[in-house]
């Protein structure tokens, strides 16, 4: 077991493994998205108070979940990277950041397009929206920090520290609707109570959420391959790989 882990934590092996996994996750994400959209637009019923406007939920919630989850994964890799100095962990967190930022942006955008017709405002400064905006800024800040530091190792470490410090924001986002009074409604799905959604609505949202997971995995693995090549270009295996291409 531990031997297998060591094997795959070597960038050379992981490069190949990631290459094999990308199409699987990519195509699964595509198919799940189609199923999810079919449920979202053709099976899920109209909502009793929000009418058709609630259909934004099928992308808003998966995007928001993903933006928080990717951040936690980045925090995990950063902690591992700082503790064990493993090369691959920092590469993973660099590969995840742009996708996390995209989902954070999309959760804000779709939220605005949902808030305007339902609440009557594109944006309000309540605790949930503000902490979600901070998450987006964190992503942008982390990527800017990486871009600003030329020395890769120092950039990795500085980025990892910022990621870990910022991780405190994720539980704040999640619990903001409980801790403070907000305009944003509470969670429809949680560990402590039965979901407060009709089952087809719930299924549509869950399928879209899994699709977002698979998409993120596919994109991050694809991106990490580029990062691996770049960082390992002095090694024999990359030289061989490049020679084989032409």
């Amino acid at each position: 077991m531990s031997i297998a882990w060591f094997k795959y934590s070597s960038p050379a092996t992981f490069y190949g493994l990631a290459g094999k996994l990308v199409p699987w996750f990519g195509w699964s994400a595509g198919i799940l998205t189609l199923i999810g959209l079919y449920i979202a637009f053709f099976l899920a019923p109209t909502d009793f108070q929000q009418g058709e406007a609630y259909r934004v939920i099928f992308i808003h919630v998966p995007a928001a979940w993903m933006s928080m989850f990717i951040y936690m994964v980045m925090a995990f890799w950063s902690a591992i990277g700082l503790a064990w100095n493993t090369r691959l962990s920092f590469m993973m967190s660099r590969a995840l950041a742009p996708t996390g930022a995209l989902f954070a942006f999309l959760s804000l955008w779709t939220g605005a397009f949902w808030g305007k017709p339902m609440w009557g405002a594109w944006w309000v400064w309540d605790a949930r929206l503000t902490s979600a905006l901070i998450l987006f800024f964190l992503y942008v800040g982390i990527m800017a920090l990486w871009a600003a530091i030329d020395d890769r190792r120092r950039g990795d470490k500085a980025g990892a520290l910022l990621i870990l410090v910022g991780a405190i924001n994720v539980p704040i986002i999640y619990f903001s609707v409980k801790w403070w009074n907000t305009l944003h409604q509470g969670a429809s799905i949680s560990m402590t109570k039965a979901p407060s959604m009709a089952s087809l609505m719930l299924w549509g949202m869950l399928v879209m959420a899994i699709a977002a997971w698979f998409y993120s995995i596919a994109v991050a693995l694809y991106r990490v391959r580029g990062i691996i090549l770049e960082r390992e270009r002095q090694t024999e295996w990359v030289k061989k790989l490049l020679e084989a291409r032409s």
Binding site: T46, G51, E52, R55, V56, F113, K116, P117
Partner: peptide, 8 residues
């Protein structure tokens, strides 16, 4: 979309 086409 029930009048919410722009937003959806």
């Amino acid at each position: 979309m029930g009048g919410y086409g722009l937003y959806v």
